[in-house]
Structures are given as C-alpha cells and as structure tokens.
Write a protein that binds this DNA or RNA. Sequence first.
DNA 1: CCTTGAACCTCTAGTGACTGGAGAGATTAA
DNA 2: TTAATCTCTCCAGTCACTAGAGGTTCAAGG
Lengths: 136, 136
Amino acid sequence: MFSIGQLSQATGVKVPTIRYYEDIGLLPCDGRSAGNQRRYSVAGRDRLRFIAHARALGLPLDAIRALLDLSGRDGAPCRDAHAIAGAHLADIRDRIARLTRLERELERITQVCDHDDGPCRLLEALADHDQCSGAH
Amino acid sequence: MFSIGQLSQATGVKVPTIRYYEDIGLLPCDGRSAGNQRRYSVAGRDRLRFIAHARALGLPLDAIRALLDLSGRDGAPCRDAHAIAGAHLADIRDRIARLTRLERELERITQVCDHDDGPCRLLEALADHDQCSGAH
DNA sequence: CCTTGAACCTCTAGTGACTGGAGAGATTAA
DNA sequence: TTAATCTCTCCAGTCACTAGAGGTTCAAGG
C-alpha cells in the first residue's frame, strides 16, 4: 500500500492533484490508515498512471472518466474508446489549424512596423481587423 | 453614445463580457444614464474593438492591458509593443509544436488497435507511457 | 518511551476569461 | 398607459488545478 506522498512520487502527480481527483470521483483511495490517512493499492497507482498519461496527451478529465468506465466493462468498448480518442485527435488538429492561422496573422502584424520612431503601426494593425486576411 | 447592447452589437462582444471588462478595469464606461445604465462613446467602442481583436488573436488580457497603456503614452512604445507581440508569437509557436507532437502520439496510439473484438490495445497504449516515443 | 520533523488532514479561496441565471428596475414604441 | 425589451447588481459555475491556514499523524532516532 502507498501513502499519498509515495503515490505522488511513483506517478509524478502532485499530492493536491491526487486529492482533487478523489474529490471529483475519478480516483478513490483504497482505504484509510488508523489515523485517517489515504492508502492506495497497486491498482490505484495504475489507474492514476492512466489518468496522468491521458492528461499529458491533453485529454480532458471527462473523456478520461469515460475511458476508465469503458475499460472496466466488457461489451464493445474498443469502438467507443476509438471514438473518444478520435474526437480528441480531431480537436487537436482543429486547434493546430487555428493556431497556425493566428501565427501567420501575427507574423504579418509584427512586420508592418519595424522602426523605432513615429507612431507604431503595430498598434494600429492590432486595432483593425479589416487589415487581416481572414476571420479568427 | 451607445447603450451596452448597442456596443455589443457594434463589436460582437457579449454584454456580460463588456461588464466583465469593466470589472477588471479594462474598459471603463463613459458615464451613466439617469437610470444608471452604462453609456459609451466612440472612443470606448474603438477601445473595445482593439480588445476584441487582440483577444481573437489569442493575446491574454494582461498583454492587452499593457498594449493599451502603451498606446496612450509617447516615448518609445513601438519597441515595447513589438516585445509583447513577439512574446505572444513565440508562445503560439511553442503551443503549435507541442500540439503537433501530441497529434503524432495520438495518431500512433489510435493505430495500435483497429479491430472490434478482444481486449482493446488502445486503452493499454493510453495507460503505458513507455510505448510513447518521447516526453509530453 | 518520547521527541522531533516530515508528511498528512480538511477547508477555503484563487487562477483566466468569461458565461449564465435570478430578481428587480429602466427605456422605448405603440 | 402598457407591454416588450433592455439593463441593473449580485452570485455561482466552468476547467484543472494550486496555494495557504491551521491542525493531526507517522516514522525514525535517542
């Protein structure tokens, strides 16, 4: 059995975060010591590792909760898991696309003015959406 | 003079958001009606347009506040404005790079398993960081 | 057995940038 | 005048934590 600090060391997840995951019902502890301190089993550690890795991949906690529910069930979780991961992948691609448009727009804006005196056209360009090539 | 709703229509910024900007000291209103309703001048509308456009470009409100302070001053705001915009551009590029790594990783994970029966390796792959090519 | 210091407990509040709702008052057009 | 719309303030919620206060428990050394 692990204490919360040992679990934190074993997974790289901070202690307050582990307690937060318990609060929202994502990671129950496997019991308490006589003095009311949390104790975790190996299964609990593995569950937290799953959560931590999925978080590192950017999945929101709701999606992680759904995946954890799936992995406990039989039936056809494979398709459902793919649906969740696929939706996340689509979301990531969408964010990349939008950030890339912003990058180009901001590059353009920072290049309209590269002098040291006179009124700064950068501020004007930032103020005026009409100068932009598209929507954001 | 605009009412808050007219300002909202003119800028595309929602009414509660305008009030929020006032709360945090970003956009004071230019007076009140006899019945205590907010009134805005053309200058106020332009200021909100600046804020809205900078937000659409992804700048955080802190950076926008700094830019608004700059645009009111003389001195050498041009260099400072470039510094703020440049930092934001670097941040965007960093986020794109990280999202692209995640995209590749998630692509790999979703491809380890494309069947309909048996245990889903997608869930295993999500659980196991060691299968990943790098850090995230 | 006792002490010390680290780890742990609960609870509250704060982050960024809003969004939504309740319940009451103001404005405007017919 | 009346009805419809708009606006007011205040409070709570979002997401995923993070930080702090003030108190309790644990493990190791003497």
